[in-house]
Simulated scan of single mutants.
Amino acid sequence: MKKSLLFFAFICCIFHSAFSQKNSSQSSLDATKAFLATLNPEQLATVSYPYDSEERSNWYYIPKERNGLWLKSMNEIQRKAAIEILKSTLSEQGKDKAIAIMQLEIILKEIENVIPESDRRNPLKYYFTVFGTPSATSTWGWRIEGHHLSLNFTSQNNKVISGTPLFMGTNPAIVPSGNQKGYQILKDETNLGFELLASLSEGQKKKAIFSEDPFFDILSANCPKPQPVVYKGIGFDELNDDQQKKLMKIVALYVKNYPLGFADEFMRKIEKAGLNKLRFAWSGEQKNTGKGNYYCIQNDVLLIEYDNTQNNANHVHSVVRDLTNDFGEDFLRKHYQKEHSKN
């Protein structure tokens, strides 16, 4: 027990020293206001929705048209202002991945021999949407979304209170040819999963691996309200110290896509829900040999899913969900309950 408590303290120290920073949405607020100021009335009507609109949970990650204002319809000043929102929304790590995912559409367009004038696989086919009135004293939200990217954030009193769902995907996962052959945006998400699996004993693998056949996609898909994955896998407390560190390294990788202040609070929330309740589950190929695989990590708050099965296992989908507060719904529910209790 003493060793376990010392290890928990060690984990907490590492993550909080790395993440420690005030949670503030001021930079996103400033960037969003600056962006909105560049728009004409018609564009403002297209980009704006009420905060409690059902559109907030109408999210997806396939190459389809969205509601909101897309980059292609903007002039250069507006595009630059829109990208500033994206940059303010994520950490440096997250921003770099998001922009790389958008640019990967150029490579995919070449691979699929899509005609240049087509909007299919267009790096400008990303949509910006604002929910409510952005201010330091209001509750408002914003979404940046297109193929393989969905960022959904909520701010209340100038503080990020929700940053899920956060989806990132890549096709190709590894560029197969050309000048960027071997380029891999979500490399760590892939490799760290295999590293943890490889560290398990045969007995541990029997608990962690629930199927030899991976899923075609993440199980939570684009559901507005995610449910825990039914495959429980192996528990955190069934891992040795080194394996626990490997599991937490994967969790940290996903959480560090967020701005540091929110990342710190989200990690604390995950810990409060119980690190010993974290579970790691796997299906599919057990070695990184180019065949399909899937993993998930979850407790009562966190759900991380990773799937690489499509296009001959060269097409990654990954997502972070907060099982208690996607789209800030927990906050919204408590707000309505408080208002009704006054009547």
Rank of each mutant, 00 (worst) to 15 (best):
I144Y: 04
I77G: 15
K246Q: 03
K87S: 12
F331R: 08
K22S: 15
Q184P: 11
N293Y: 14
W282R: 03
Q298A: 02
A9R: 06
F331P: 09
S118N: 02
V319P: 02
F331W: 14
A263R: 07
Q310H: 11
S24F: 12
F236N: 00
K206A: 14
G290V: 08
K87E: 13
R143G: 12
S53Q: 01
P63W: 06
D326T: 02
H315M: 07
F153L: 13
T137H: 13
N257M: 07
I107V: 05
K22T: 15
D241Y: 05
K287S: 14
K2V: 11
N240E: 00
L151V: 13
V319F: 05
D119R: 07
A208D: 00
S150P: 04
N293Q: 08
Q298T: 02
G235I: 01
K3L: 10
E145Y: 06
S53A: 04
Q227M: 08
W142K: 03
L200S: 00
L5M: 11
R333N: 12
L260C: 15
Q43T: 09
N222T: 14
V229A: 10
G132W: 03
Y127N: 05
E271D: 13
G284K: 02
E65D: 14
P172K: 01
F327R: 01
L166S: 10
